[in-house]
Structures are given as C-alpha cells and as structure tokens.
Amino acid sequence: MTNLTVNGKEVTWDIDPETPLLWALRDHEKLTGTKFGCGVAQCGACTVMLNGMPRRSCVTPIGTLEGAEVTTIEGMEGAEFEAVQTAWQGIDVPQCGWCQSGQIMSATALLQMNGAPTDEDIDNAMAGNVCRCATYVRVRQAIHDAAKTMEG
C-alpha cells in the first residue's frame, strides 16, 4: 500500500511496490500524458516532477514514494511551466509529440533553477530527453523564448 499525492490529489496504490511510477500513473490513474519510451531511464519521455524535481518515472518504484508529491504534465502549473508551454506552442515544437511531455517537464525544471540558460545549460539539462523527430532546434529556441518572456 503506497499513499502519495498525484497532481494535488491523495491516492493510494494497493499494487506491487516495485511497480514503476510510470505504469502506476498510466495504468491506474489513466494519466497518459507521461509516456513510455525505453523503460531504462535513457530517453526522458516518462519525466515527471517528484517533490518538485524532474524524475524518470520508468525507473522509480512506487514503494519508494510513500508521502511523495508527484506532478505530471496534466497537473503542471506555475509561471515557468506556462512560459514553456506558450513558447512550445508559439513555434510548433512538437512533431509526433510522444516525447514532448518529458521535454516540457525537463525544460520547466531548467527554468525553475536557471532563468536565463545558455545553450550549454540547455544541452546539459535536456541531454536526457531523446526526440526521434529531432525537434531539438525548436526545443532550444522555445526554451530561450520562454526565458525571455519570464524576464520581460
């Protein structure tokens, strides 16, 4: 039995404590914005916020999450998230879209820690998020755009 908060709601999961958070969110909460890409923390499609920090949900067993606060793309809010989302929409970053929730989570976390990231900061913060459509040019641009709106 695991008790935690997901997107501000208290939930109790009476399932195998080794279940990765990713599958608990998808199969049990039907929060499908968080995606499966690799299952081994190599692609970042499953990124969620765990107690305010980005985390790969595919390798996070729910047994370690007693009392934790989890936020998925569906529950995200705040100035950085909104700036990122708006910037993403402004230049049509997504192609297939499968990795984009994870990209947006990582980008939001970056801006929360660093309001004016350089290209190198972006490379480091986004290194774990794979996009097979290679939307990287626009991911980079959108993060810079979001930082600018935050400043302004």
């Binding site: 499908t32 914005g33 569906e74 929409q89 049509d92 970053v93 997504p94 984009q100």
Partner: peptide, 20 residues
C-alpha cells in the same frame, strides 16, 4: 499553426498506447 500542437503540449493528445 499546427492543429495538434496544443494537445501535444498539455498531455491530452491520445496516442495508441494511451487507450484504456
């Protein structure tokens, strides 16, 4: 602007695997 961008930036786009 692309028609599917909004849903692909808020987690609401439903792909094959998202069906239950």
């Amino acid at each position: 602007p692309k028609l599917d961008t909004q849903k692909k930036t808020n987690g609401s786009a439903i792909f094959g695997m998202d069906q239950y």
